[in-house]
Design a protein around this nucleic acid. Sequence first.
DNA 1: ATCTTTGGAAACCGATCGGTTTTCTTTTCT
DNA 2: AGAAAAGAAAACCGATCGGTTTCCAAAGAT
Lengths: 189, 189
Amino acid sequence: MTTEVKQSPRERLLEAAATLTYRDGVGIGVEALCKAAGVSKRSMYQLFESKDELLAASLERRTSAYVATLLPAADDDRSPRERILHVFEQVESESGAPEFYGCPFLAAQIELKDQSHPASRVAHGVKENLTAFFRAEAEQGGASDPGLLARQLSLVFDGGSARAGIGADQLTGLIAPTVITLLDAAGVR
Amino acid sequence: MTTEVKQSPRERLLEAAATLTYRDGVGIGVEALCKAAGVSKRSMYQLFESKDELLAASLERRTSAYVATLLPAADDDRSPRERILHVFEQVESESGAPEFYGCPFLAAQIELKDQSHPASRVAHGVKENLTAFFRAEAEQGGASDPGLLARQLSLVFDGGSARAGIGADQLTGLIAPTVITLLDAAGVR
DNA sequence: ATCTTTGGAAACCGATCGGTTTTCTTTTCT
DNA sequence: AGAAAAGAAAACCGATCGGTTTCCAAAGAT
């Protein structure tokens, strides 16, 4: 079998960037990234324009796996209410993992500050997609104000992941009751 | 009059650190901090043990003004519900300012990652104090589960300030309805 | 007026930053 | 086997990092 057991340098770089920037912040050095990936700086700089582009590509790559983990499957035939709750069950269970620091996209935006940074733009798009998902479900579920509910859910999502990430609180017993209260108030049964 | 028109080097450093780390992140250089404060590095290092201690002291100094801005006055005789809403009105109005990047304490913790960093500890204490305030008001207001409500309010507080800080959303029309829904659900009238 | 303290300016330290270039080894294709 | 492409290792670049030290001017105290 000629199955690719070993990832390409490009993939190893993207994965190392995802892991290390999540754990240590976007201030991590290029040298450390390359060493972790087992790739020379020379190779890195002919695969990516700059460190900033590597970070952006790394976040971009995380996107599909991230939404796949959080969102219910496309053929999921549960109610909108249950599909929304599914997202928060996922983040609650993820938050129990030993190395959980909250949503990596939110963290990247806060650390970078600059909203025009390529990685910030990617993260911004992810956030918009999540809010759009909430909004679609809210509409389907007959929410009194779907736009408001979607924003509220995103608010709880980011707040919860941020607070869990800095060790300010546990999501257990907090996030589900909160979401249910908001769903009830919006008339989504 | 011999009123102090000019602050001490220590105060100027604390203020410069507050401003610049909030705007540019905790990765800001010592050189830039000293230049902004009009203080030599020599003086800085005999006023503070290290950059980390300066950051911690700067956050510490912000604390009193921060809670004074957010929390209602001690002699405020409004109801717990109104006193809680007061906090969110304050953050909503602050979020309209041109240079608003969300709660500086939350940002510092996320950027530093290390929870044992002296500045992280200071920030952690501020968060605990705010949650304690919410809890006391929740108890006073007869909330069905004061501990839960307090955590929910802190969740909304941090989520809102984070999302507004990264430009993901506006707090206007979002945070007040959310808090009211939670207060109503907890039975705080 | 002299002495001592304060503190700003700036050189300096080793380390690291993002990024480039050279060298040499490994792989791959023919 | 031999030529050619790829890539890892590492030196190197100027700039900046946190932090220290030297030097000298200004301010205060006696």
